[in-house]
């Protein structure tokens, strides 16, 4: 039994030197940071970044000598549990949010996987926002050399373009275009712009944002984004099995996916999204959401052919329709249950 409300964990990622710590520092200064724990992960053997962040020792933890996505994943788990345990010893379970700054080489999707796959952590933590910093001066060059940058971008809910004050307008636009190609679903911000509100950036997740058909051009680095539209209702059981099968074989190359699905099994549309092998629990859209008669699925893939994925899904849905009984048509039980109560 869970004895406390879940705390949200936000992941702040970005390549080496892209301005993560500055962003973190600004974020902590902008919010009421009581009840906020901070974990800083550094690849180097000696941690430095935490010294740049003014924060109480009680709620700040440092993980050095490796990436929390791989080498020190177990230690990340321990550190998070330690934060939660210490908070439980205090009065009133104050910890409501944890911000994790990853190392510059970390893959945020793997970190989120670590958290979600651990029964204890999943019981006490829920995934908040994934924010990625992207340096407009060197970011594009780094991304073309290091796949880690592309993975970071692809997993982001929001991307913050940093060091814009050091770059020409063209460089900013090039960075913006690059990020859009890699992850058209992410919100884009420019640090230091008049409308930039770092606290709001961390509040944003892609849970219920609208999506629609799009087909961005093939990117030089092999990452493509495309949208599948499926007319009519999708059988959720069939779709979910197809997706497990696809992720089992190709999850490492499906950098991001997100969809709003309409299914006969549910009264309201479902939002499904994930990062590579990780799929988040589908969200049921609120009562005010009406079905539109089609489903949209956006994929960001690395080295996969969109037409193959589309053909595979269509074939699978046809196959499934022939082999399983039709789903039970769901009624809006809210009416009957409210009468019964």
């Amino acid at each position: 039994m869970r004895l406390r409300p879940k705390a949200k964990i936000d992941v702040l990622s970005g390549f080496l030197g892209s301005g993560k710590t500055t962003l973190l520092r600004n974020h902590l200064a902008a919010i009421d940071s009581s009840g906020v724990g901070v974990v800083i992960n550094e690849y180097g053997v000696t941690a430095i970044d935490h010294r740049l962040v003014r924060y109480g020792d009680d709620d700040l933890r440092v993980l050095a000598s490796g990436c929390a996505c791989c080498a020190v994943a177990d230690r990340l788990r321990e550190v998070l549990l330690e934060l939660l345990r210490e908070d439980a010893r205090k009065d009133g379970n104050q910890l409501s949010r944890i911000v994790l700054e990853t190392s510059g080489l970390a893959d945020p999707a793997s970190i989120l996987n670590t958290i979600r796959a651990d029964e204890n952590l999943a019981e006490y933590l829920e995934i908040g926002s994934c924010v990625v910093s992207f340096d407009v001066v060197d970011g594009v060059t780094c991304a073309q050399t290091y796949p880690e940058v592309r993975h970071q971008l692809a997993g982001a809910d929001s991307v913050v373009l940093t060091k814009a004050d050091l770059a020409e307008h063209d460089a900013i636009e090039r960075a913006r275009s690059f990020v859009r190609d890699v992850n058209p679903l992410a919100q884009l911000h420019v640090a230091g712009a008049p409308d930039f509100d770092v606290a709001k950036v961390f509040e944003y997740t892609q849970g219920v944002m609208g999506i629609g058909p799009q087909d961005t051009p093939r990117h030089a680095v092999g990452i493509r984004s495309f949208c599948l539209r499926i007319e009519g209702e999708v059988d959720w059981a069939s779709f979910s099995i197809w997706l497990t099968c696809l992720l089992n074989r190709h999850g490492s190359r499906i950098l991001r996916f997100k969809g709003i699905l309409e299914s006969a099994s549910y009264v309201r549309p479902l939002v499904v999204h994930g990062v590579r092998h990780l799929v988040y629990p589908p969200q049921h859209l609120p009562d005010t959401s009406v079905k539109r008669g089609h489903s949209d699925l956006v994929f960001i893939v690395d080295g996969l052919d969109p037409s193959q994925i589309e053909t595979s899904l269509q074939r699978f849905l046809k196959f499934a329709a022939r082999h399983v009984e039709a789903p039970e048509e769901v009624r809006d039980r809210r009416l009957e249950t409210s009468e019964a109560t």
Binding site: Y266, V272, H284, R334, T337
Partner: peptide, 11 residues
């Protein structure tokens, strides 16, 4: 996640 479970009325 494949269960996509939700209760219309938890009671």
């Amino acid at each position: 996640w494949t269960d996509a479970g939700t209760l219309a009325n938890p009671r």
